[in-house]
Design a binder for these strands. Structure first.
Lengths: 157, 157
DNA sequence: CTAATTCCTCTAGTGACTAGAGGAGCAAGC
DNA sequence: GCTTGCTCCTCTAGTCACTAGAGGAATTAG
């Protein structure tokens, strides 16, 4: 095993792009590595492990802040793992909600494209469904979100 | 039917927040409405319809640029609706891909939280799975994405 | 007439990067 | 030694679709 890796090697090994690695350093997710004489970053095996951890967690959709917490937990393994469990559980719930609402969305989009007559825009089902909100089972509007202003758009569920 | 609505009324009716409406105007998605003597925006019925259209399309996860195209199509209904159909179809494909990958993710997260021994971090399955990338069925790494650098993180699928 | 609410413009911030400018280090070949 | 080409450095600014807040003006209710 080598003891030092350039940022490019780290990028190739982890699948995280070079500027992203620098970005992770900037926001304090990855420690600033020592530099070579010429001023280049030199990563050790521990850094490589950390980077793989981050990459995997990001791949699973964990937010940077969650990863920060997870990394802290990993750093002192004597703590209770309840926090890690809670983070993963919360994320699972979020993912399940996202799946549910994307599935509803999928149904509506399928109705759209199936109903499309492939003629002209006047009478196009895609446009019509978007224009007539009453036709779909989505619900929103005044006096429904109590006060807190819930955006509830599809891409953040 | 009223012929003029304040931005607040438009917001309540459409479910789009006031600053967001102004933002839509700024980026040219919504036309700049006439103003009252005091300089306030005054929306007509057509604006209200357009806003509802936008809101619904956003709710379905269409991007602003796609909505722009869709609105242009709606504005001259003599065109072929092939473009609208293509946009909806593309979006459907994207949604289906997203569902598939979120479902895989869900399975992995379930493995994580089910395997958690609720003890200490040393031996916590959540942390372990994140650290040992080999354990999961996700795949990445060098020499797999040919050249174009595909990020492939979960939240953009 | 006052107080509360709504509205205005403007700037800056969010998350998680990505893109590009402009320059310097470094290895290999000639 | 010199050039070529790659990788690396820092820095700024841009992405998307908003959101937050300052500071002030207009409208509305009582």
């Amino acid at each position: 095993m080598k003891g030092h890796f350039s940022i490019g090697e780290a990028a190739r090994a982890s699948g995280v792009k070079v500027p992203t690695i620098r970005y992770y350093e900037e926001i304090g997710l990855l420690p600033s590595p020592p530099r070579t004489e010429g001023g280049r970053r030199s990563y050790g095996a521990e850094d490589m492990r950390r980077l793989a951890f981050i990459r995997h967690a990001r791949e699973l959709g964990f937010e940077i802040d969650a990863i920060r917490t997870l990394l802290q937990l990993q750093d002192n393994p004597n703590q209770s793992c309840a926090a890690a469990d809670a983070i993963a559980r919360d994320h699972l719930v979020a993912v399940e909600r996202r799946i549910a609402s994307l599935t509803a969305l999928q149904a509506e989009l399928m109705r759209m494209v199936e109903g499309c007559s492939h003629g002209h825009v006047a009478g196009c089902r895609v446009i019509e469904i978007l224009a007539d909100h009453g036709e779909c089972r989505h619900h929103h509007g005044p006096a429904e979100t109590t006060a807190g202003s819930a955006p509830a758009f599809a891409d953040r569920l």
